[in-house]
């Protein structure tokens, strides 16, 4: 799907999921597929939130521990955990989350700004939130969560 096209209009579908008992979401336009957790290959000298590399039908891609990335502590991955495969800035990456809950239709006009109280991670990685019924669903800013590929060694 063409992303530019996907984001036109305010009515959008979001995929919601749980990370460290908080509810988050991403725009469905980024989501390629959702898979169960399987062990990854650890990368040397990688940031702690990079769990390792996984094999998606012949493509090698990194898996990030979203909880750790958001400053919510490391995830002990089990087979019940889920990897959301996203395509961001032409890169294919996996986000390790606890569980996927819903696909909801929301209007981006209803998105509320992140209150100015959050930690650095929250400020950087959460674009805002939706309130659906009693739930508060935080919108993950995927372009910031996934570090840009600079081509430089890391």
């Amino acid at each position: 799907m063409d992303h530019a096209e996907a984001f036109q209009g305010n009515e959008r579908e979001i995929v919601t999921f749980r990370v460290s008992d908080q509810e988050f979401c991403v725009d469905i336009g980024y989501v390629r597929e959702i898979r169960g957790w399987s062990p990854t290959t650890v990368l040397p000298h990688a940031p702690d939130y990079v769990k390792g590399m996984m094999n998606l039908r012949g493509t090698v891609l990194p898996v990030m521990d979203l909880s750790l990335r958001l400053g919510l502590g490391a995830t002990e991955a089990t087979p019940r955990h889920v990897i959301i495969i996203l395509v961001v800035n032409d890169m294919t990456v996996g986000l390790l989350v606890e569980a996927v809950s819903d696909i909801l239709t929301v209007s981006y006009e209803d998105m509320k700004a992140t209150p100015d109280i959050g930690s650095t991670e929250t400020k950087n990685f959460v674009e805002g939130f939706f309130t659906v019924d009693d739930r508060m669903i935080r919108v993950v800013d995927v372009t910031c969560v996934v570090p840009a590929n600079t081509g430089e060694p890391r």
Binding site: L43, P44, H45, A46, M53, T59, V60, L61, P62, D90, M91, T92, V93, N149, T150, G151, E152, P153, R154
Partner: peptide
């Protein structure tokens, strides 16, 4: 590894 991640030292 370059496309989806980047260069890795070593």
């Amino acid at each position: 590894l370059e496309k989806n991640y980047g260069q890795v030292v070593g």
